[in-house]
Write a protein that binds this DNA or RNA. Structure first.
Lengths: 352, 352
DNA sequence: CTGAAAGCGCTAACAC
DNA sequence: GTGTTAGCGCTTTCAG
């Protein structure tokens, strides 16, 4: 356990000088600094984080709050791994570390957050899985803890946020499907209070309006955003009186279950039911037919999220003046094989 | 910022008494304790972690080291989310917190770990994605940091570990497929230095030996443990001279790509190529045909991992004397639809 | 440019 | 049963 004391003794210097040398203060002899740095390296000295935090009043770590079993489904965690990389890139510039704080299923997200911020184990946090009404914003404000969120919420206040363009993709998906001949387009949204549900639905309605199509509650399906949820949705689609010819899925994982259920019914995804899903993922890319979906640059998103956070930290705000307060993150359509034009079908219909 | 000082002032008590009350020490008046606890609750007091750590020399947090882009593939992170829940259950009993430390792609895992342990931000760590030869064990031993690993390694020494029974599942899979009429069984293993590769292969060889089947290097495929890797494997299978009738996959994600490639070739997974994959997952459950795979209790595994760690911490070792030093975690076959008996095929062949 | 000393918030040893 | 005090490792005044 090499502490600064041992290092100082070994160098025959005072701990003050050693500390200043290590922290790159100007008022230290260049030669002395060199000696200190060399010895620190050799002895493998790294400052004790507790001592440092206590003295400085900051921990130099940022917490990403992940909520297990959240509205986004259990499995698309890999979404975060992309974002995290960008986050770390942004934070690294200021030697800030990132830790993930995982709120387990059987713990209340609000009290979990309360505990984490009270402990002052991090200087700032990034919130995910925002609910439409979310108490956590107040908790953080009360604790005076800087934060940004991935996801909008009605409780946002003046907090910084990034969110995917759920309205945009829903709206443009409807238009695209309309252009491909579809007149009856269903949608699948989460069955829980996640803020993205209403947004997606809103875009869907706008898309319908754009195309002069009627809104029909009977083809708005609420389900889990998982494979199983997709299976359930397909089940409902099959049972629908005037069966839709296309469907928008809020999560790509749903397509797996949907494909299976269609297959069980002897139907072919794409041909018998066109599918567009929210996010590009390896699974979607290797489904047959390949999923038409939306791509986004997770790394860039993470970087911007990091920069937003930095712009909220007094120490760094100066360098991040031009970072926006909120951002709707764009997604780009990736053409797959799951939403071919309806032409053939129409021909068949007009024949009958 | 309510500190113990403010709390003490507010209560007209010394900080010593307040501290003892809060920490459940015996020598404090029951009535006083009640007052303290009540006031702490009201003022939302939570001890500052830095102050506490500095004084006690321990942080009461455990770090789970996750390596991004590791040998397990990018996407099956949800594996960890199951394990983490169990881990937290075990650690919670002793009020230990868990933080996830994510080593990003562009950072060296060894130096990342070095930094994390030197900072003393955690009291102990859990290592994952163990390599066959892994420097990190020595780093931890040098730093005198207790640890357990999820995954075996040649560098283990006397460290505690849990690992899935890769030999076992490979071996029994071969036997099962043999029983179902298969005589030419391929295997797909990782193309990187992950310790599970050789283990899986070893079980595969044992299984072949059990059945009196020859080992043929031409049907041992090395690939990424991802959807894409599965696609590549299928490609190679199709190009194989004496085409295998069955295949073992080290990761269930591979099946997605494999299914697709077979589909592209007009072949049906299961019927034209039987598939058994390592781990049960939602994706596999909703593939068509449903994947035959192996199930394990992630939560229980996490709990045991936590208990193993506790048995390595001086403070808690006493309570965990009967926890084993190492454990090969059993998996249970989950019958799917992807490895039906070969009978029909055989009939067809004998007809031709 | 360097050393001495204060003090961040907390717990534990000791005194009463 | 409670108050007082030392000190965990570190950074940052303040002298010199």
């Amino acid at each position: 356990m090499t502490g600064i004391r041992q290092l100082a003794d070994h160098l025959q210097l005072s701990i003050g000088t050693v500390s200043r040398a290590l922290n790159g203060k100007a008022d230290v002899n260049a030669q002395t600094r060199e000696r200190v740095l060399k010895a620190a390296m050799e002895l493998g000295y790294v400052p004790n984080q507790s001592g440092r935090s206590l003295r400085k009043g900051t921990t130099s770590t940022v917490g990403l709050i992940l909520t297990q079993g959240n509205s986004l489904g259990e499995n698309n965690d890999n979404f975060f791994f992309g974002v995290i990389h960008g986050l770390q890139t942004a934070l690294k510039k200021h030697k800030l570390d990132l830790v993930l704080l995982l709120c387990s299923r059987d713990e209340d997200p609000d009290s979990f957050l309360q505990r984490m911020v009270a402990q002052r184990i991090v200087d700032a946090v990034i919130l995910t899985a925002t609910r439409t009404h979310d108490e956590r914003f107040d908790i953080l404000r009360r604790a005076n803890m800087p934060f940004v969120t991935l996801g909008r919420s009605e409780s946002l206040g003046d907090a910084s946020w990034i969110d995917l363009d759920f309205e945009g993709i829903a709206r443009s998906s409807v238009t695209r499907l309309f252009g491909r001949g579809h007149r009856r387009i269903a949608v699948a949204v989460p069955n829980v209070d996640a803020n993205l549900g209403p947004l997606f639905l809103e875009g869907y309605r706008q898309g319908l309006a754009d195309c002069g199509l009627p809104f029909d509650e009977n083809i708005v399906f609420h389900a889990e955003t998982s494979e199983e949820g997709g299976y359930d949705v397909a089940e409902k689609v099959l049972a629908t009186e005037d069966r839709p010819t296309a469907i928008l899925l809020i999560a790509e994982l749903m397509s797996v279950g949907l494909y299976r259920r269609l297959g069980e019914a002897g139907l072919t995804p794409g041909r018998d039911l066109a599918v567009i899903a929210e996010r590009e993922s390896p699974v979607g890319r290797f489904l047959l037919p390949r999923l038409t979906c939306f791509r986004l640059d997770l790394d860039a998103l993470g970087r911007m999220l990091g920069e937003m956070l930095l712009s909220n930290l007094p120490t760094f705000a100066e360098n991040y003046k031009d970072v926006p307060k909120g951002k709707i993150w764009p997604l780009e359509l990736v053409e797959g094989e799951s939403d071919p034009p309806l032409e053939m079908k129409e021909t068949l219909l007009s024949d009958g």
